[in-house]
């Protein structure tokens, strides 16, 4: 296994870990804001690491460019969506969870 493959593997596994963590956060976190926080980590870092790992295996520079374009577009869209959901929740009067509220 070459260094390239090794780095690629580590990056892919780390990316998958962020997706797993994001999913668990969405299922387990107490309110909409904290869940958004967990989800965007999966989209930004998780997908970024996956893209990086895949780019190392890509056959051409064009494929690398396309992969990073996908990452950039997803980050744009997910950031905007996160902002919109959070803003809608805030305007609907949902107050952020804090430890004082308890379970």
């Amino acid at each position: 296994m070459s260094t390239n493959d090794l780095v690629s593997c580590v990056s892919l596994v780390l990316g998958a870990f962020f997706f797993l963590a994001g999913t668990m956060g969405m299922l387990r976190f107490p309110d909409v804001y904290t869940r958004l926080h967990a989800l965007t980590k999966a989209d930004n870092l998780g997908l970024g690491l996956l893209v990086f790992g895949l780019a190392l295996q890509a056959e051409s520079w064009l494929a690398v460019a396309k992969l990073f374009l996908v990452w950039g577009l997803v980050m744009l869209a997910s950031t905007t969506c996160c902002h919109l959901v959070a803003q809608a929740a805030w305007q609907a009067g949902i107050s952020p969870w804090s430890r004082r509220d308890g379970q």
Binding site: P30, D31, V32, A88, A89, Q91, A92, G93, I94, S95, W97, D101
Partner: peptide, 14 residues
Amino acid sequence: ARASDETPGATPLV
């Protein structure tokens, strides 16, 4: 309509 769709009042989503 959109607001009522989310939550009526200030109850936490959870």
